[in-house]
């Protein structure tokens, strides 16, 4: 009995629910005789595509700020860089690298200022982050209408103002990473390029955590008073975490866009932070503690559910698409809500 209790505590309530739900879905795919190889390939691709968004939460939690609800700041930088590379006509891996580099440079600058701001707003970072996200995304909507940088007919609307709402990457770097060294096991396609990128990202963050600065950041995040007393500059660590997180967002959107074959501009990035937050929470992270395993486990569970649920629900009832959409909303926000009520604050 004690063992079961300890196991339950190790897994946690929200992860347990998600695992049970996923298990039911997997059983249903077999029971309904669905194309399980195809579904597995989809799951793998989606894990790769969303990986950097979830990774972005890690440095932010580590330096003690909490979850990054303003992830779209990085995403917007990445999109801007990506659209510029399309304007310049860069193709293949070179295009992706250029977009990533330019995007990270931009987002490092943006993240620096955002981190500076957050240092003055301790305690309400999540709320302020959410609203900074909303307002910057809607500001960029005006930006996309008025930017003078773009002239290509594939980017601008043929008539009227502004940039198209989706920029297709067909002929530039559409699915380049997905297909890089991809191979098949049975009928399951393994998108090697995506996993290489994800692996590199994990490795880089892991290496950073093991470095002197990384350990200092962790200490400062876990106990700022202690950090201060041993001479760590807490403010600097928080800025560094924010910069890293924003950069991950920029790289993430480039990888995501090459996978789905287009940049979705205007209001599309506004809600991109929530699924990433839900994913890392499903993995077992809390607002105070997260590691790379939480990212990997959470990403796998969350994306598996998101991929399998529509297929299964479409088989079960006739308006399955709306059911899976509703399930997505409820799971994503339910997980975040559960984590918010677990803040070890005061009881009233």
């Amino acid at each position: 009995m004690k063992k079961i209790k300890r196991l339950y505590e190790a897994i946690g309530f929200s992860r347990l629910i998600i695992i049970i739900f996923l298990a039911i879905l997997v059983l249903l795919t077999f029971a309904l005789g669905l194309d399980s190889a195809g579904i597995t390939s989809d799951v793998l691709v989606r894990i790769g595509l969303n990986s950097f968004f979830v990774l972005a939460m890690l440095p932010m939690v580590e330096c003690g700020i909490g979850l990054n609800f303003a992830l779209p700041l990085g995403i917007l930088c990445g999109q801007f860089a990506g659209v510029l590379t399309v304007e310049w006509g860069l193709t293949g891996i070179g295009g992706i690298l250029a977009a990533c580099l330019l995007g990270s440079a931009l987002s490092a600058a943006v993240g620096f200022f955002y981190g500076k701001l957050l240092n003055h707003l301790r305690g309400s970072e999540m709320m302020v982050g959410t609203y900074i996200n909303f307002s910057i995304v809607s500001l960029m909507c005006i930006g996309w209408m008025l930017f003078p940088f773009f002239s290509d007919s594939r980017i601008k609307w043929a008539m009227g103002n502004g940039v198209r709402s989706t920029i297709t990457l067909d002929g530039f770097y559409d699915k380049v990473l997905n297909d890089f060294l991809a191979f098949q096991i049975g009928n399951v396609t393994i998108p090697t390029g995506l996993f290489l990128a994800f692996g590199l990202g994990c490795l880089a963050l892991w290496g950073f955590q093991k470095s002197k600065t990384g350990i200092m950041m962790k200490v400062s995040g876990m106990n700022p008073m202690f950090g201060k007393s041993i001479g760590i500059n807490n403010d600097r660590m928080r800025i560094m975490g924010t910069v890293l997180s924003t950069m991950c967002g920029a790289v993430g959107i480039v990888i995501y866009a090459q996978g789905i074959g287009m940049y979705q501009l205007y209001t599309a990035p506004r809600n991109m932070a929530f699924p990433a937050i839900a994913a890392i929470l499903v993995g077992g992270a809390t607002l105070k503690r997260a590691n790379i395993w939480h990212v990997i486990i959470g990403l796998t569970l969350y994306q598996a559910i998101l991929t399998i649920a529509p297929v299964v629900s479409a088989q079960l009832i006739d308006d399955g698409s709306s059911l899976s959409e509703i399930a997505r909303v409820i799971i994503c926000n339910g997980v975040i809500l559960y984590a918010l009520t677990k803040i070890d604050g005061r009881k009233v």
Binding site: G123, T130, L337, L340, T341, G345, K347
Partner: peptide, 12 residues
């Protein structure tokens, strides 16, 4: 149960 984070809790 979410004292101090009521607004973000409200949004979610």
């Amino acid at each position: 149960r979410a004292v101090g984070q009521e607004m973000i809790t409200g949004i979610i």
